[in-house]
Computed example of a mutant assay.
Amino acid sequence: MRALVIGASGGIGTALCAALQAQGAEVTALSRSQDGLDVTDADSVAQHLGALEGPFHRVLVVTGALEIDGMGPEKALKHLEPEAMLAQFKLNAMGPALVLRHAADLLPRDKPAVLGVMSARVGSIGDNRAGGWHSYRAAKAALNQFLRGAAIELGRTHKQTICVALHPGTVQTDLTRKYLGRHPAVPPAEAAANLLRVIDGLRPEDSGGFFDWAGKPIPW
Rank of each mutant, 00 (worst) to 15 (best):
A65C: 05
A65T: 01
L66M: 08
E67R: 10
E67N: 06
I68V: 15
G70T: 05
P73M: 12
E74Q: 11
E74C: 08
E74A: 06
L77S: 11
K78M: 11
L80Y: 12
L80W: 11
L80P: 08
E81S: 10
E81R: 09
P82T: 15
E83D: 15
E83M: 14
E83I: 13
A84S: 12
A84E: 05
M85Q: 04
L86N: 14
L86K: 15
L91H: 03
N92P: 14
M94W: 06
G95L: 02
G95M: 11
P96L: 12
P96T: 13
P96M: 12
A97S: 13
A97L: 11
L98I: 02
V99H: 00
V99N: 00
L100G: 04
L100M: 08
A103Y: 00
A103H: 01
A104R: 13
D105H: 13
D105L: 10
L106A: 02
L106H: 00
L107H: 09
P108N: 12
P112G: 05
P112Q: 04
A113W: 00
L115N: 08
L115Q: 14
M118Q: 07
M118I: 15
S119P: 03
S119T: 00
A120I: 02
A120D: 06
A120R: 03
R121D: 11
R121Y: 08
R121V: 09
V122C: 10
V122N: 07
G123N: 01
S124H: 04
S124T: 03
G126I: 08
G126F: 04
G126K: 06
G126M: 08
D127I: 00
N128L: 08
R129S: 02
R129W: 03
R129I: 01
A130L: 15
G131S: 08
G132N: 02
W133M: 09
H134T: 14
H134P: 02
S135Y: 14
Y136S: 02
Y136K: 03
R137T: 03
A139C: 09
K140Y: 01
A141V: 01
A141H: 01
N144T: 04
N144L: 06
N144D: 05
